[in-house]
């Protein structure tokens, strides 16, 4: 398979079949907390796409250029998390300084996802699966998009549900988790699309 095809497969499977939120259940806390409105979900989703793509590539570089040569791969958890945290903080400062509109739309969500497990998860998966730099970037972008897609869908459903009569014990997180489960089942349906390939 040509490499561009492989990149596409990595990207596609990250968005759909291996959706980081719905198949690995990572990034749940912000998924439940910020999925009440489509507008907020869109801002948070965009922030996740951006941070995952950038930190995926950044962590890949540090992993392959520093940790692997020095035989220190067991330190990846600590290293990845501080890189993500520092990166997000600096990007937020730059956005806040340079563009008020971008800050209002995207920047204020950045601190919320600094310690998001989905971001960390994406960085860890990419090294576990031995991705190259291109694939790591494709995987990061795809996972971010998949996460954004899932939270947008959930926000759309929850906006409609705001007027529904949910049994009292299931209000809030309860019904949201049930819906997330049904959405996860739907995403399982994508599985057949890639398994035909190598």
């Amino acid at each position: 398979m040509p490499e561009s095809m492989n990149l596409f497969a990595v990207f596609f499977s990250a968005v759909f079949t291996g959706n980081i939120l719905l198949t690995n259940y990572l990034g749940m806390c912000s998924f439940l907390g910020a999925s009440r409105e489509v507008k907020t979900a869109l801002g948070l989703g965009t922030a996740v796409v951006f941070v995952m793509a950038a930190t995926g590539a950044l962590n890949w570089l540090i992993y392959c250029l520093v940790l692997v040569p020095l035989d220190l791969v067991y330190l990846r958890f600590i290293v990845f998390i501080v890189v993500i945290a520092a990166f997000v903080q600096v990007v937020e400062m730059i956005i806040e300084r340079t563009s008020e509109r971008l800050h209002a739309a995207l920047g204020i969500f950045l601190p919320l996802i600094t310690v998001n497990c989905a971001i960390m998860g994406a960085s860890l998966f990419m090294v576990i699966r031995n991705y190259g730099l291109g694939e790591a970037f494709a995987y990061g972008t795809g996972s971010g998009l998949g996460w954004a897609l899932a939270i947008l869908a959930m926000a759309g459903i929850r906006q409609k549900m705001a007027k529904a009569r949910v049994p009292r014990g299931l209000e809030g997180a309860g019904i949201t988790l049930i819906i997330a489960g049904i959405m996860a089942l739907a995403f399982v349906g994508f599985n057949g699309m890639l398994s035909a390939g190598p």
Binding site: V79, V83, Q89, V90
Partner: peptide, 16 residues
Amino acid sequence: VVCAINTALALLMVAA
């Protein structure tokens, strides 16, 4: 290595 990476990032943060 951990110290070096953390120091570099801390310096970056301080500079920012």
